[in-house]
Amino acid sequence: MGKETVAPRQLPADLDDWKVYDLVSLSTGETVWIKGFMGFSMKRRKIGSFTVVDLPSWDTQTLHLKHVVPPEAVWEELRLNLKADVVGIGIKEPLMRNLFESYSSFFARKASYLRVIRPRILVVEGELDDIWKYKLDKKARNAIRRAERVGLRAEEINPWEHIPDILECNRSKRGVPPSYTNEEALANEIKFLALNFRKFYSIGVFLKDKLIGYEFTMFSNNELALFSRFLINYKYKELNIGELLLWKGIEKAVKEGAKLIQYGSWSRYHPGLDTFLEHFGFRKDFKTLNVYIPLTLVGRIFLMQKRFANRIVNSTVLEHLLQHKIFRNHWYALKRIRVKIT
């Protein structure tokens, strides 16, 4: 299904102070309108005999409202118009702002299955100099200076021109299976990100002319930048590649207009990465609520299966195994292999 562009309807005169974010979908799909004013990108998928509709772009269509559209009205519109067994909605606190509590509490009561995630968020306040002085701590600033003293440089790159070096970065950490099994898998991801995000670019770190670290940045709207595939060549890990790469990623995102920068979610299984990001001022006090609501009896059965599978995944035995590095690395590698980008 291709992208469908729908022109916004005319707002009433008393609502002309509304600011509507860009209605650019994160995923190809249809556009659903709520009471004529609020748009969602919709992705329909089949899981066996079940039909699930995801609204992954919820946060990119947030409104700064003078007159709030109540969540009850949104739900009624979805319930009546979506032809599916299950609807999945992601509600991000930093973008929903003052609407988060009312919307999250309402949809949580409707949900048969929900997950609360705590995203790693850097809030952009002031100029770049302010971020350098007040967000980054002394350890982060010194590491960046060391990287520059040994001759590393970071710049925006065209990932298509560095496929071999990107694959080498992915394969350089011993005991961790690579994110990409071949050039085709990497090419498919680059195409997917370039086509389905508001803005997409890549930053690379070089030692002389060799790429030894890279990251992908995607903008889901004009305010939120997402860091992904943040990887370095572990043969050169003592050169502080990661610190320079992260700082240049922040610098570029701020220049592109980002107000919020997200790098994954806080996890007890990645304490080293969590500590690394804390040195750069990433905060823990935001939430993302992912809710799945059944629309049919078939949908209820599907979510019962999902809850049962989730209990197994979060079982005591698996949790104990994930405390050990070798099991943890292969578990996350398996999860990556199961995700097929089309």
Rank of each mutant, 00 (worst) to 15 (best):
K43E: 15
D17S: 11
S49L: 01
A13H: 01
M42S: 12
D14P: 02
M42F: 05
L26C: 09
D16R: 15
F37V: 15
D17W: 10
D17G: 07
S49R: 03
F40K: 00
E4K: 14
A13F: 03
D17I: 05
G39L: 00
F37Q: 11
G48D: 01
A7M: 13
G48A: 06
D22T: 07
S49I: 01
Q10D: 06
M38Y: 14
D54N: 04
T31L: 14
W33M: 13
L26Q: 11
L15D: 12
L11G: 05
V52G: 03
S49C: 00
D54F: 07
G36E: 02
F37A: 12
G39Q: 14
A13W: 03
R45P: 02
Q10W: 05
Q10M: 11
S27F: 13
D17K: 11
K19S: 06
Q10I: 13
T31W: 02
T51G: 00
T28Y: 13
T28P: 10
T31C: 08
F40C: 01
K3Q: 06
V53Y: 01
A7P: 05
D22M: 06
I47L: 11
M1V: 14
V52Y: 02
R44V: 09
V52K: 08
T28Q: 15
T5H: 09
V32H: 12
D16K: 15
K43Q: 14
T5K: 12
W18S: 03
G36A: 02
T31F: 02
T51Y: 03
T51D: 03
W18M: 06
G39N: 05
S49K: 12
G29M: 00
G29C: 01
Y21F: 08
P8L: 06
V6S: 09
V53A: 09
L15V: 01
R45D: 12
S25L: 10
T5C: 05
T31E: 08
K35Q: 14
M1E: 14
L55K: 00
S25A: 11
D14N: 13
K3M: 11
V20N: 05
V32D: 06
V24I: 13
P12A: 03
K3C: 04
D14G: 03
F37C: 09
I34H: 07
G39F: 00
K3V: 04
V24E: 08
V6A: 08
L11V: 07
Q10F: 07
V53L: 05
T31R: 15
G2H: 08
F40S: 00
M38K: 12
V6G: 02
T28S: 14
G36V: 08
R45G: 04
V24N: 07
S27D: 13
M38A: 07
G36F: 11
D22V: 05
E4M: 10
T5N: 11
R44A: 03
D16N: 13
K3Y: 13
Y21I: 03
D16E: 11
R45N: 10
D54Y: 08
M42Q: 09
R44H: 10
P56Y: 01
G36C: 04
Y21N: 12
I47M: 03
F37M: 11
K35H: 10
S41C: 06
K35G: 09
S41T: 09
R45Q: 14
E4I: 14
R44G: 00
P8I: 06
I47R: 15
G36S: 04
E30W: 00
L26G: 12
Y21G: 08
S41M: 06
L26Y: 04
L15Q: 15
D22W: 06
A13L: 13
I47C: 07
E30M: 04
W33Q: 13
T51Q: 10
